[in-house]
Amino acid sequence: MLGFRDPMADAIGLLRPRTVIGPTLRAVGEWALRFDPFLHVRIGGLVRGTCWLVLEGHEPVFLREGDTFMLGNPPPYVLASTLDASPRPAAPVLAGADHGTVWIGPESEDDLYLCVGHIAFDDRNAALLTDLLPPLVIVRAADPHGHRLGQLIDHLATEVGIAAAGGPLVQNHLAQILLVHMLRAHAGQTDRPTGWLGALNEDGIGAALRAVHADVAHSWNLKELAEISHMSRSAFAQAFRSHVGVPPLEYLIQWRMSLARDALTRDTMSISELARATGYRSESAFSTAFRRVVGSSPRSFRDEARALAATRSDQAG
């Protein structure tokens, strides 16, 4: 069986997150740093002080101590002490970090203490999450999730600043915990469809999602899922599409194909085994569904993944 039980844990696990934390930023006086666009997610928060976050195409946002932010596939952005400060490229400044910290101004004092982490995902399935996120999510210190997020940022910043045994492992886990809490906060503060993320907060729809993820090989139909949700078929179909953004059985197909992409990339089972594991009675039925969603046959997809893995191995060697 390829599925688990919790859709958020399933999705994040399938994304195979890779985290890069820090360096932390300590600054005093007037300063501004311009960051280039990047893929996937960046999460940060203010341990102390205030600053402006200016995302290209959006209104400037003033951040205070304890606030956290999440950027999803963002365009260029600027962090600055004031809106009048002239930004300089962030990359060379961050490259000059000393023991996990970058100082702007005298090292004996600072007005700002900022911790930021970058979380990258497996490119083949990254859209599972990044398609659900706006470019910017802000969680204020006073928000229901704010205190917990502030504590996590504080802990993460401390780990970056010390050379303790197991530090990278702790940082990686803290960043992923921070990601989960930011996703929960985002799902709770928006009224637009947020895919599986927002649907988990709905008792009936959430129960259906958990059932699908617990047994992805089962031949699910609309009647069964509606019964799990304690709703009529029409009400369930309408509610599911409203919260998730796609019809229930289309979501099932999309999730099965996400699992299939991952398995083919890792080359962990034959195509016929994968067809059965994802709920298809024949390899041809699975291949037809895979081609419709992914745009290539399972065999071609696997061959391309093998070739890419071989190229990377040669380059590493």
Rank of each mutant, 00 (worst) to 15 (best):
V102Q: 15
R16W: 01
D98N: 12
R281V: 05
V116I: 14
S242Y: 04
A175L: 08
H118V: 00
N73C: 00
R266N: 13
L114V: 06
R42D: 00
P89H: 07
I21C: 07
Q238K: 10
D111S: 04
T68Q: 00
L259M: 06
D267A: 11
L222Q: 11
H218S: 04
A226K: 05
A9N: 08
E65Y: 03
Q238L: 05
L197Y: 05
E109G: 07
L183Y: 00
I138V: 11
S287I: 08
Y280F: 13
T194S: 01
G317R: 11
D262W: 07
L114H: 09
S219M: 06
E224T: 14
G167N: 02
L197G: 02
V28C: 01
S284E: 14
L179I: 02
G195T: 01
H213V: 11
R124S: 06
R276W: 03
G66M: 05
A163F: 06
G44L: 04
P37L: 14
L308M: 14
A316L: 05
I21F: 11
V137K: 11
D84L: 09
L252P: 03
P17D: 00
A211M: 07
Q171R: 10
R5T: 03
W255T: 11
W103V: 13
F62P: 15
H181A: 06
G49A: 07
D84P: 08
A95L: 03
R292W: 04
S258V: 01
E107F: 14
A11I: 01
L152M: 13
N201I: 04
A157E: 03
L156W: 02
S242G: 02
I271A: 14
E250C: 09
D303W: 15
S284I: 12
